[in-house]
Structures are given as C-alpha cells and as structure tokens.
C-alpha cells in the first residue's frame, strides 16, 4: 500500500544512492517502461521493493488511442505488475500511438464524447488485463482542438465515474495547462471528485519565452516545484485530503538530496493540512 505521504520518482541516476543509503522516504514510483527487460534494472527494483512501497507509472500504454491498446505492451506491464506487486499503477490521459507508430510523448486528446468512450474502453481493457484499478493522470497541454466541447475536468470526472479508475491529479500539469490555455487552475481542482483522487504528482516546469514577448509553459520536470504550484498543492490537499504525493524530476536530474528536500517540503505542507489522511 502506498502511504498518504511524500515519495519520489526513482530514476536510474539514483539507483545506487537509494540502494546504498536507503533514504528515509515514504515510497517510490518508477516508470514501468524502464523495467520491462531483464538484467540489472529489474534486480535493483526487486531489491528496492523489499524495503519501500513502490508504485508503477506507465508512460507508453497510450490510453487515448482510437486503435485500442497495444496488447504486447499491456502484457509487459501485466508481467511487471505481477512481479513487483505495486501499491498503485497509473497511466496518462493522452495518446501516443496510431497506425502502428508510437510517438514518444503524451499527445493531447480532444475532449469529445467519442474520445471519452474510447478512453473508457481502453481503461477498462487495461484494468481487466491487470486485474486491478488503475489511476489516470491529467497531462500538460500545449494545444487545444477546435472541437473539444467537454471541459477537461468534466472529462476526467466522467472517466473515473464510468470506469471506476482513480485520478492521479498532477497539480503541476493542471497549472501548466491552465496557464497555456487561460483558465483558472482552481476551477479544475474544485471540479474533480475528491474521493477519486488517489495520488498527486508535483514537478517543475519552465517558462519558454519568445523574442516577441510571447511565452508558453513547458512541463519538462527539470527544476524545483514552482511557488504557484506549491500554493495550488495546498489547495488540492484541502479539497482531497492527504493523498500520496510524488516529486518527479526527469531532465537534468539533480543529486538525490534535492529530491528528498522537495519531498520534505511536500510532507511539511501535508502535515499542516488538517484533513484526514487517505492512503491509496
């Protein structure tokens, strides 16, 4: 079980430090795709799993593909989940594959009834195959479609309602998307069904400025969590109660101590939050 406390996303540069130092962190999350082969990474994960609660976070299943899920990829995820026995399994509200080609990014979906039924079908297929509930995470967005009549937060809520999946609320992603598309991120948080939110993600993003004065926020997981996102996180806790919270860092990965420091800050905000703990 993943505790209602702060964890960190474990990446390869920190394998050795975590194995040798066994830092005091409540739980760890790994990208499932990094452990789908054999050999050393899997041995490290086995060793870490003995001492820490571990969550699996997929980045390549493409829950939004109109073609349906890649059965081979789903089987690999199932095999890994059977071996690791993770506290949580999560994926993204996005698409990455079409016509047999995979795009190594979380591409945006139009929020339509058709897309909702496709994502529901894929989430149900994943849950059926894995034999467990999964969490679905909102992605950062840099474009909107002209035909996208359902607000994203309603789409997420409907997905959870129809499939029984949990919500992985990425507060940084909500902030990035809200800034890029001009809506109030608090509106998003308030619209989510609190009882469905089983995990929160936090990460840094960058503001990419153009010479003509325009700017866009890019979710690069390459810096500390911004002040605005910490503030939004406190609001999220007030709404959802204490839920497992993860610090992610993927670009220019700093020493482990920096991630632990970010996790400690999340833990501190969580401790100030007086509402009930909600372990996943």
């Amino acid at each position: 079980m993943i505790p209602a406390a702060a964890g960190i996303g474990l990446r390869f540069p920190h394998h050795r430090a975590v194995l040798e130092e066994r830092p005091a962190v409540a739980w760890l999350e790994v990208h499932a795709e990094n452990y789908m082969g054999g050999g050393k990474p899997l041995m490290v994960l086995d060793a870490i799993r003995r001492d820490y609660p571990v969550a699996l976070h997929g980045v390549g299943l493409s829950l939004g593909s109109a073609d349906g899920l890649n059965e081979r990829h789903l089987a690999r995820l199932r095999n890994l989940a059977q071996r690791v026995d993770p506290g949580l399994v999560s994926e993204h509200l996005s698409w990455s594959a079409t016509g047999g080609a995979h795009f190594a990014d979380l591409l945006p979906l139009p929020f339509t009834e058709e897309a909702l039924s496709i994502v529901c079908r894929n989430v149900e297929a994943a849950q059926e195959s894995l034999g467990r509930r999964i969490l679905v995470e909102n992605a950062s967005s840099y474009l909107r479609y002209r035909h996208s009549p359902i607000p994203e937060w309603e789409f997420v809520a409907a997905l959870a309602e129809r499939t029984g999946c949990g919500i992985l609320c990425d507060v940084n992603n909500i902030f990035v998307t809200a800034c890029n598309h001009g809506f109030d991120p608090r509106r998003y948080l308030h619209a989510l069904p609190a009882e469905r939110v089983s995990e929160i993600h936090l990460a840094g993003h960058q503001v990419r400025k153009f010479e003509d004065g325009r700017s866009i926020r890019i979710d690069d997981h390459g810096s500390r969590v911004s002040h605005e996102v910490w503030a939004l996180y406190a609001e999220a806790l007030a709404l959802f109660g204490r839920v497992p919270t993860l610090i992610e860092w993927d670009t220019d990965v700093p020493p482990l101590a920096v991630l632990l420091d970010e996790a400690a800050q999340a833990q501190c905000i969580m401790s100030e939050e007086r509402t009930h703990a909600r372990p996943a």
């Binding site: 016509g99 795009f103 139009p110 479609y145 002209r146």
Partner: peptide
C-alpha cells in the same frame, strides 16, 4: 478521433501539418 490521430501522426513524422492544423486552435 482515428482520423485526427492519423493526421497528427503525419505532423509528428513528416512535418506535414496541413491535415491537422485546421483542427487546432
């Protein structure tokens, strides 16, 4: 959605944006 994703793919692979641009704000 299928058509949209195929059009998006042409942009990702071949920088052919025409088919998807009309669908994007």
């Amino acid at each position: 959605l299928l058509d949209l994703q195929r059009a998006f793919a042409a942009s990702m692979l071949h920088e052919e944006d025409d088919a998807v641009c009309g669908a994007v704000v």
